[in-house]
């Protein structure tokens, strides 16, 4: 506890505070939460500051628990040491993620999306955990986390648990986070060798996404395996393009596969018209970007 302000300095203290005052809002980078009018800010509920909690912050490699030390079929197997996971604390900013060596080398699409979120000023404040909990359909990092098969770590008064990202983000601005719970970290499994990402935004910077595509895959003898393709801003939550993935699975890495997957992607999304774009455009751009990324990945 901060002796001057009485504010929590540890996750346990924060959880206790959330139990005592269930309407308490846990603040992180605030780049979305502070965008509200003067009256809403004046009438805001009590807040705590997660940025002051050291254990929520930072990037580290952690050992894979032996029970989970399995690898995707077809990947080069190393029977001796299970590869480490990358644990990214919930309040790690995109500015930190953007330049972290382990991210840049192992998960380049995460570094890339981090560099395309808002502006430098936003990246210096916005946190990975905040992007997850905010659960916007246009949350930039979310399709990347889905493609990378990320898991999230949640702390509750009863202990900690880990769930896959797609079991976390349930609907439009709706997550699996229960009352009194905190998202504490994101865990990335060992990096897939092929990764690609594209954000189609409203302009070159400080843009909101119209369409996002993130993909990650392995390959063996010139064929795709373990393909995961995720799309953002085309549905209330980021979605896997399972038909496109299916086209790729075991298929040769070539133009025909890319084109066929693009057609499959076209057929499996139902985007909407909104202030930023049209359904027609989103579907068209999504399909073309899927093809392009498969050609370039």
């Amino acid at each position: 506890m901060n002796p001057a302000s009485g504010l929590p300095r540890t996750v346990d203290e924060a959880l206790l505070r959330l139990q005592e005052r269930p309407d308490t809002v846990a603040l992180a980078g605030c780049t979305d939460w502070m965008v509200r009018d003067r009256l809403a800010r004046a009438d805001a509920p009590p807040v705590i500051d997660l940025l002051a909690i050291e254990e929520l912050h930072g990037i580290e490699e952690i050992a894979t628990p032996p029970s989970e030390a399995k690898r995707p079929a077809g990947a080069d197997a190393d029977p001796t040491t299970p590869p480490p996971l990358l644990r990214i604390g919930a309040t790690t900013t995109f500015g930190e993620i953007r330049v972290d060596r382990r991210v840049v080398e192992g998960y380049p699409i995460l570094a890339e999306v981090a560099s395309q979120i808002g502006s430098r000023q936003i990246q210096n404040r916005a946190t990975l955990g905040g992007n997850l909990v905010n659960a916007s359909p246009a949350g930039d990092s979310l399709p990347v986390l889905l493609a990378l098969a990320a898991e999230v770590e949640i702390a509750s008064p009863d202990g900690r648990r880990r769930i896959p990202y797609d079991a976390f983000h349930l609907g439009y601005r709706e997550t699996a986070l229960g009352p009194g719970e905190l998202l504490t970290a994101v865990l990335l499994p060992p990096p897939p060798p092929h990764q690609a990402f594209r954000k189609v935004g409203t302009r070159a910077a400080v843009a909101i996404s119209k369409v996002m595509v993130a993909m990650a895959a392995h390959s063996r003898q010139g064929r795709w395996s373990s393909m995961r393709i995720a799309a953002g801003s085309v549905a209330p939550v980021p979605m896997r393009l399972r038909a496109a993935e299916k086209v790729c699975e075991g298929a040769p890495i070539d133009v025909e596969t890319a084109t066929e997957a693009a057609e499959a992607a076209w057929g499996e999304v139902e985007p909407i018209d909104d202030v930023r774009s049209t359904a027609r455009y989103r579907r068209w751009a999504l399909s073309r970007v899927v093809r392009r990324l498969l050609l370039e990945m």
Binding site: S119, T202, R203, A204, A205, A207, V275, R276
Partner: peptide
């Protein structure tokens, strides 16, 4: 007006 904020009324940034 649908795009009544700077988030949705798009003016060029330095990169544009």
């Amino acid at each position: 007006l649908l795009n009544d904020r700077m988030t949705t009324y798009i003016v060029p940034t330095f990169l544009d």
